[in-house]
Design a protein around this nucleic acid. Structure first.
Length: 576
DNA sequence: GCCGTTTTCGGCCCGACTGTTTTCAGTCG
C-alpha cells in the first residue's frame, strides 16, 4: 500500500530538523518545511499521482530536487538524505528542538560542549549547574531550559479548541473591563479554529498601552510572567496555558490582527505579494516607503494588496491566496446555516438528559430538527438499545412531535459496525428509523485492508445513512484506525450516503483535509454534535470551524437543508 | 532548495524580547 502524504511530510520535516541542527542555509531549511506543510495538507494522495505517472513539481514549493525525493520516498519507503542525516547525529537531538527557548544554535553547543543528546540529559546538565558555565549562557537561561525540559517530560500538550475557548472567553471578559482597551480579539490558531491550540494570542488596541498591559498582568489566573515589554507580554496561566498579549494603537489593529492570526505561512505569502508591489507589511500596517497606507482593519490590509478579505479559517497557505486573486474564494458555511443535527444521544443510552430536555436544548441552539441516535445494543457500556427499546423510543418521539412545535425530533440510531461489517440490528428494525448512523467502536487494530472492507460492507446495507466519526481518532489520545480513506470516500459517493464531520471537541473527525477531500469528491457532509447532554450542541461551533477550514459551503453540508429536503435525501439513499 | 510582470542568479518576511552582553545573538511568533 502507498506511502501517505503525511508520511512524506514527516520525512521532509525531519530532514529540516537535522539541517537546522547542522546550521544549514536557512532558506534550504524553509524549503523542506514549506514542502512538508504543502504535502501534509495536499488533498490528493501523492501515491495516486505517482501511479498515474504524473509528476510533483507543479505543487507549490516543490522543484526538481524535492519532486525526486518524493518519488524516492514513494518507491523505497524512505529517503537516502534522511538516512545519512540520522546516521550523523544522536537520535534525541530533534526532540530538543521542540523545546521552547532553545533553538538549533544552542542545542548544537549544548551537544558539542556538554554532550547533551536528549531532554533527560539536558535536565541533568541544568541541575548540575553545568549550563550556566557556558559562554553566552547564564543562570536565567539555565533555569528556563530546565523548566522547559521538565515540562516536556511531564508531557505538556496542545489544548483542545473547546477547552481553549473557555479560557479565551474568561480572559476576554477580564480585558473588556479596562477602559484602556478599545478593541480586542483572540487571534492565532484559535481564531483560525484549529482543532488544538498551543497558546492564546490576545490582541488589544489601546492608546494607553502601559495601562492595558498592567490590567492584563493583574489577571488572577496568571501563574507566572514569562516576559513583558511595552507592546508584548507573555504569561502562563495556572492551567498551564500560555497567553501572549500584544498591544497596538487602533490605527494598527487590522494589521496586527492579520499578523497575529497567521498562519505564519499565510503572512509570509502575503508579504511576498506586497513586496512585489513595492509595499511592506508588518504588524503596524501596510507601508509605501515610510508612509502607512493601511492598518486599521483587516479588510483594508487585504485590499491594498488587491485581495478580497480572506476568512481566518482559510489562512493556512493552502491555495487561499490564489483563490482570492481569482475571486474564487468559497462562500463558507456559517453556524446560522445549520438547520439540524443528525447525531445526538439521550439518557436512553449514554446521554445525560431526556428527550424533552435535549429537544429544548436543540431548539435553543437555533435548530429546526435533530436526530436522536442512541447507541445500539452491541455497545453494552453505553446501555445500547435493542429492537424493543427502540420501538418504545419511537413511540415517545412520535408523542413528543405530536405535542410540540418549533423543533422536530427524528428517530435514528448510532448502530455498531461489527468486526466483519455487519450491523448489530436487523434490516427490518433499521428500516423503521428515519436515519441510521453507523459507527466503529471496537476492533480498532484491524489491518488497513480489513478495516476498510468492514466499513465498506456496512455502508452497503440499504438503510445505512451516515458514517459517524469516520476515522475513529481521539485528539491527543488515539490515532484513527488504519483505513483507505480515499476508498471510503469513493464508496460513499457511489452509495450516496453521508460522511460525518463529528463536532465533538475530542474528535473533530473528519479533519479539515479529509472533509475537503470528501466534499470535493461530491460526498455530502453531515456536521453532527454527538451531544450527550443539553450543552452538547455548543460543539457545533467547532464543527463549523473545522468545516470552514475545509473550505465547505452550506451547499456541501446536508444538515443545512430544510427538513423536507433532508428527508427526501435520506429516502433516496434507501432506494439506492 | 525554490523561484521569476526586478527571471536563470541572487534573492528569499519582519519586528519584539531576553539574557548576556558592551553591541548583539538567539529565539519566537
Amino acid at each position: 500500500m502507498g506511502v501517505t502524504n503525511v508520511e512524506i511530510a514527516a520525512v521532509f520535516d525531519e530532514i529540516a530538523d537535522w539541517l537546522e541542527l547542522d546550521g544549514a542555509n536557512p532558506f534550504r531549511i524553509r524549503a523542506y518545511r514549506t514542502a512538508a506543510r504543502t504535502i501534509g495538507s495536499w488533498p490528493e494522495a501523492l501515491a495516486l499521482r505517482a501511479r498515474d505517472g504524473r509528476g510533483f513539481d507543479d505543487l507549490p514549493g516543490i522543484g526538481a530536487d524535492l519532486a525526486g525525493k518524493i518519488g524516492e520516498i514513494l518507491r523505497r519507503g524512505d529517503c537516502a538524505l534522511l538516512r545519512r542525516l540520522r546516521r550523523a547525529h544522536p537520535r534525541g537531538l530533534t526532540e530538543l528542538l521542540k523545546l521552547p527557548g532553545v533553538g538549533p544554535k544552542r542545542i548544537a553547543r549544548l551537544h558539542k560542549e556538554l554532550g547533551v543528546t536528549s531532554v533527560a540529559k539536558l535536565v541533568r546538565a541544568a541541575r548540575a549547574g553545568r549550563i550556566r558555565a557556558l559562554r553566552g549562557f547564564g543562570p536565567r537561561t539555565e533555569r528556563a531550559l530546565l523548566d522547559a525540559a521538565t515540562a516536556r517530560l511531564g508531557s505538556a500538550r496542545r489544548m483542545k479548541i473547546a477547552a481553549a475557548a473557555a479560557f479565551a472567553d474568561a480572559i476576554t471578559a477580564h480585558l473588556r473591563a479596562s477602559d484602556a482597551v478599545l478593541e480586542l480579539a483572540v487571534a492565532g490558531s484559535f481564531r483560525r479554529m484549529r482543532e488544538t491550540v498551543g497558546d492564546l494570542d490576545v490582541l488589544v488596541a489601546s492608546r494607553r498601552g502601559a495601562e492595558a498591559t498592567a490590567h492584563f498582568l493583574a489577571y488572577p489566573a496568571i501563574a507566572r510572567v514569562l516576559a513583558h515589554g511595552t507592546t508584548r507580554s507573555s504569561v502562563v496561566l495556572k492551567s498551564g496555558l500560555q497567553v501572549d498579549l500584544r498591544v497596538v494603537p487602533p490605527e494598527s489593529f487590522g494589521a496586527a490582527l492579520v499578523y497575529f492570526t497567521g498562519s505564519k505561512a499565510h503572512c509570509i505569502a502575503l508579504r511576498r505579494i506586497a513586496r512585489q508591489q513595492g509595499l511592506k507589511i508588518n504588524e503596524y500596517g501596510v507601508f509605501r516607503g515610510e508612509r502607512r497606507i493601511a492598518g486599521a482593519t483587516e479588510t483594508e490590509i487585504y485590499a491594498t494588496v488587491g485581495l478580497p478579505p480572506i476568512a481566518p479559517e482559510l489562512r493556512e497557505d493552502r491555495g487561499e491566496i490564489d483563490a482570492a486573486r481569482a475571486q474564487r474564494l468559497p462562500r463558507l458555511i456559517e453556524r446560522a446555516d445549520l438547520r439540524g443535527d443528525l447525531h445526538a444521544h439521550t439518557d436512553a443510552s449514554d446521554g445525560h438528559a431526556g428527550l424533552a430536555a435535549m429537544a429544548a436544548a436543540a431548539q435553543a441552539a437555533g435548530l429546526d430538527y435533530f436526530a436522536v441516535t442512541d447507541h445500539s445494543r452491541g455497545l453494552r457500556i453505553a446501555h445500547g438499545l435493542d429492537a424493543e427499546r427502540l420501538a418504545r423510543q419511537r413511540e415517545a418521539i412520535d408523542r413528543f412531535n405530536a405535542e410540540h412545535r418549533g423543533i422536530v425530533v427524528l428517530h435514528g440510531v448510532e448502530v455498531e459496525i461489527l468486526e466483519h461489517g455487519e450491523l448489530d440490528l436487523p434490516d427490518a428494525v433499521l428500516a423503521r428509523l428515519d436515519l441510521v448512523v453507523g459507527a466503529v467502536h471496537s476492533h480498532f487494530q484491524l489491518s488497513r485492508a480489513r478495516q476498510t472492507a468492514r466499513i465498506l460492507r456496512a455502508m452497503d446495507r440499504p438503510c445505512f445513512s451516515v458514517l459517524a466519526h469516520p476515522t475513529g481518532r481521539l485528539l491527543g489520545e488515539r490515532a484513527g484506525y488504519a483505513l483507505d480513506f480515499e476508498r471510503v470516500v469513493r464508496h460513499a459517493r457511489e452509495r450516496g450516503c453521508f460522511l460525518e464531520l463529528n463536532a465533538h471537541p475530542d474528535r473533530l473527525d473528519l479533519d479539515d483535509v479529509q472533509a475537503r477531500v470528501a466534499a470535493a469528491a461530491g460526498v455530502p457532509i453531515a456536521i453532527g454534535s454527538d451531544a450527550h447532554d443539553v450543552n452538547g450542541f455548543a460543539a457545533l461551533r467547532f464543527g463549523i470551524g473545522q468545516a470552514r477550514r475545509a473550505w465547505l459551503t452550506a451547499g456541501e453540508v446536508v444538515n443545512t437543508l430544510p427538513l423536507a429536503e433532508l428527508k427526501r435525501r435520506l429516502a433516496a439513499i434507501r432506494r439506492g
